[in-house]
Design a protein around this nucleic acid. Structure first.
Lengths: 221, 221
DNA sequence: CTAATAGTGTCTATTAGACACTATCAC
DNA sequence: GTGATAGTGTCTAATAGACACTATTAG
């Protein structure tokens, strides 16, 4: 890599640079509750051992790749679509030094999170004390997630499909959205607002109590 | 500053770090048109000389402070409220090396921008060719600005006050919003949607053609 | 007077929520 | 049958846009 000089006659290497980290709030739904994934750090005392998974950005790496790497290495979770939230840049936020953190949101089905002693899910509405500004990151992530779910049907595919072909009933979709929103949603209004983005399969869901429900699929366009 | 060791036994200084820059799309309205401020770089050939003002983040500095510093030093503009947009992180985006850019939006009245040979305003809808990903930054900034203006009356105070006490007519407010939105806005609907966030002064604007208009002020709560 | 601008009344279409009602299943 | 769930009809309130109408000024 070349090191051209700037207007002051110095190259990039002559300026101090910050460490850049990514920290990710991985949100999921477990037992109808919106939860965030925490990992137990090895190099910390017990009080601040649990935190969001994160890592330092490697040379030449995209932020989204760093997120994917940290989630794979620290939580055994793969195949996600990280969404950038914002940079946390308080110079005092990390007592190890000058560290910027680019906060991310990611979402995964709970059954794809391995169960180990170093991983735990905490209800997003009631997280324990966390180091750095990880609590703020979670708040921003939850807000971003709820906004996405107001606009489209289960955009992160949190819903566990009851049907083998991936189709679902409006009830299943609504329960997922209720978990994300943290409140009940009126069934009739929910149906009408989501139906424009769904296609009927023509098949029905049987085996449960009550009238069989139509099975829908997401619109593919 | 101490340099504690991490899990791998290395301190932060042992890892390569990126340069972190801020680049800011300073938007303004001139002659009823939404414009972006460009500065002429000294260390570039003519084709890519014009660009968004930016700078490298200094140690211990907040991003918003770096934005304020770059705008003061490069464009002679002060007193703004930068809003973070997002990080541009393509490893190839800057051929000088590994440089992340945190894009920002800021807004200033055109009469507060000095006129020099190193500064120019370009219509946001028709910017010239720009280096790096500065064109993308402008697009994101314009979108963010338009969204803010849909929700509240001139939140960045772009409007040039005709009255010495800062009050204004709904026509003046609407013309400012039309410049930002890039299209005409229906006067009656605009009035009704903005009135909840305004307070009447009880005074009237005289001296122009037509019926005198009521003078309003922004709600202070 | 006329042209221009300010401001209001009101109609329509759309939407979210509320609520009642019918439909169809398990049991 | 009963109870539960699915789905629809429809009323209301709120809202944006369209459009007509009145009000008040400059010139």
């Amino acid at each position: 890599m070349t090191s051209p000089l700037d207007a002051a006659g110095r190259s990039l290497e002559d300026y101090p640079r910050p460490s850049v980290a990514v920290d990710t709030a991985v949100l999921t739904v477990e037992d109808g509750q919106l939860c965030v994934l925490l990992v137990r750090a090895a190099d910390a005392d017990d009080a601040t051992a649990w935190r969001l998974p994160g890592t330092f950005l490697h040379p030449g790496e995209m932020l989204s790749d760093a997120v994917a790497r940290s989630l794979r290495d620290k939580a055994g979770v793969t195949g996600l679509r990280p969404q950038q939230l914002r940079v946390f840049d308080d110079p005092q936020r990390d007592d190890r030094g000058w560290v910027l953190s680019v906060a991310h949101l990611d979402v995964v089905r709970a059954d794809r999170i391995p169960t180990t002693a170093r991983i735990r899910l905490a209800p997003a509405a009631d997280v324990p004390e966390l180091p750095f500004d990880h609590r703020d990151i979670i708040d921003v992530a939850v807000e971003a997630l709820q906004k996405r779910y107001e606009a489209s049907p289960d955009p992160f595919e949190l819903m566990e499909p009851a049907e083998p072909d991936g189709s679902f009933t409006l009830r299943e979709l609504r329960l997922t959205h209720e978990s994300v929103a943290g409140r009940r949603l009126p069934p009739d209004t929910f149906r009408r607002s989501m139906r424009a983005e769904l296609v009927e399969t023509g098949r029905l869901s049987h085996g449960r109590r009550g009238k069989p429900a139509e099975l829908y699929r997401r619109r593919t366009d």
